[in-house]
Nucleic acid binder design. Structure first.
Length: 104
DNA sequence: CCGTTGACTCTTT
DNA sequence: AAAAGAGCCAACG
């Protein structure tokens, strides 16, 4: 996909992610879908290399399509705590935080 | 029904 | 130029 008007793919990703309301989460697929792409992978990668501070681009509000947490470049527990602080809760199943499910 | 494998997509290193 | 990366889905056993 190269119909990107002036902004790079990853800038578009940041814009969408930064527009996620507090207390709400969005999936990688939804973000990719909004860009008319299927590059869910690229979305995750953009957030991984994200050059912006977390306060500007809340990557912790981005989860997998099956509502699992997915990964996180810094501490996964950080993601959990931030989301809980926004009123989001999880089903803490197992010992792997990336597999915890977001309650909706 | 479940777990594993492969194909897809896009950016960055 | 090639491979990896915070994923998703379909197909196969």
């Amino acid at each position: 996909m190269n119909n990107i008007p002036n902004k790079t793919f990853n800038e578009q990703v940041y814009e969408i992610v930064s527009s996620i309301p507090k207390g709400y989460v969005m999936t990688y697929k939804q973000i990719a879908n909004k860009l008319n792409c299927r590059a869910y992978r690229a979305v995750g990668n953009a957030l991984n290399k994200n050059p912006h501070p977390i306060s500007k681009v809340p990557c912790h509000r981005v989860i997998k399509t099956n509502l699992e947490l997915g990964g996180y470049a810094w501490d996964i527990m950080r993601k959990v705590e931030l989301l809980e602080a926004e009123g989001i809760t999880f089903k803490k199943i197992g010992y792997d935080p990336s597999k915890w499910i977001v309650k909706r």
